[in-house]
């Protein structure tokens, strides 16, 4: 959080804290998997005098179980502030790399927020009571909707992970809906079929189709890892959608005869690297320590060689992010 100080000035960043004053941590934070001890978020690793490994995380010391190696990893959290429960203060919606979305209710005030522990947002499928009231046609539709939403009733899951939630009254009924940017580049809409104070989310509706990781540089297409903004961009009274992405742009380059030979060498080295990568994965499953040695002794020299060769060739790939604008044609009301 960068707090504004007026006159266009901002204070240095601070980490948001919950109602107890603790740093907000999602997805448990630490996990022992195989030979590894994964620590999500920011942490320091230290060795003690007696050779033990300790993770220092937000002032707390956690001893790493014997035989485990520590790996630091982020969760690509995406934060969005909105008055989700309609009580006049700003609550927090947070997406993460696994595709889940968390709601942190603000139990403080507008000026002194106090965030409750995170809870997963989930789809609330149509109930049997709802079905009974509906016509046969609507009952069948509700049945399929319920089946399709089944695995999101325990928690929303963005396809391709990397969830980016945004709350907005997309259908103009006075209730905040949830739009979700997804790792595969798609955008989903979860309509609020509850109330302004107690949102209930209907099964997802596709707003934007998935993108692609690869794209030609001459004809740029939409990429993946959709990041959203919902706003009336052109002042016509309708909410529009802005989408940020990331894409690998491939350029067509003309190679000289000498460069073509280098390219052939590079292709061979890449093949070797692919083989070593497969061996590494197999070894890693058996023994992480040996896999680490294998990486240092066999793979790193090859990676460096590949890097040196690549520098001698014109760059073919470039990672880039763009901003796409989807103007709204019409506002579809909920049936």
């Amino acid at each position: 959080m960068f707090y504004g100080q007026g006159q266009g000035k901002f204070a240095p960043r601070q980490m948001l804290r919950d109602a107890r004053g603790e740093v907000i941590l999602l997805e448990a934070g630490m996990q022992a998997t195989g030979n590894y001890f994964f620590v999500k978020g920011m942490a320091k690793i230290e060795k003690t005098k007696d050779g033990k490994t300790v993770v220092i995380r937000h002032g707390k010391r956690i001893e790493v179980p014997e035989g485990k190696q520590v790996a630091l990893t982020g969760i690509a959290s995406t934060a969005h502030l909105a008055d989700w429960d309609g009580d006049g203060d700003l609550d927090l919606l947070v997406g993460e790399i696994g595709g889940s979305v968390y709601y942190l209710e603000n139990r403080g005030t507008r000026t002194q927020p106090a965030f409750a522990p995170p809870e997963k947002l989930r789809v609330t499928a149509a109930t049997k009571k709802d079905d009974a009231r509906a016509s046969l046609k609507r009952t069948i539709k509700a049945f399929f909707a319920r089946a399709a939403a089944a695995d999101e009733t325990r928690g929303i899951r963005a396809p391709g992970g990397d969830a980016h939630p945004v709350a907005a009254d997309w259908d103009g009924d006075g209730r905040l809906d949830l739009l979700l940017g997804c790792g595969d580049g798609s955008v989903r809409l979860y309509r609020n079929v509850g109330t302004r104070q107690k949102p209930r989310l209907a099964p997802a509706v596709a707003l934007v189709s998935p993108g692609n990781w690869n794209s030609k540089a001459e004809q740029v297409g939409r990429g993946v890892r959709a990041k959203l903004c919902v706003a009336d961009f052109n002042g016509d009274g309708r909410l529009d959608l802005l989408l940020g992405d990331v894409v690998s742009l491939r350029r067509r380059v003309q190679l000289t005869e000498e460069q073509k030979k280098l390219k052939q060498q590079l292709d061979k080295l890449n093949e070797q690297y692919q083989k070593l990568s497969r061996d590494y994965v197999k070894l890693f499953r058996k023994d992480a320590q040996q896999a680490q040695q294998f990486m240092q002794q066999k793979m790193m020299p090859l990676i460096q060689k590949i890097g040196r060769l690549r520098q001698q060739l014109p760059q073919e790939d470039q990672i880039a992010g763009h901003v796409w604008l989807f103007l709204r044609r019409e506002v579809k009301k909920r049936p």
Binding site: A148, K227, A320, H322, L327, R328
Partner: peptide, 30 residues
């Protein structure tokens, strides 16, 4: 778990935003 219906018709085809006549390009845009 595929979405049941598409409201794609609500949205016009996307356009890539520009600044000063150049396409905006960063490393993963938000």
């Amino acid at each position: 778990a595929a979405p049941q219906q598409s409201t794609t018709g609500e949205l016009a085809p996307p356009v890539r935003l520009q600044a000063q006549g150049e396409f905006i390009q960063t490393h993963h845009a938000a």
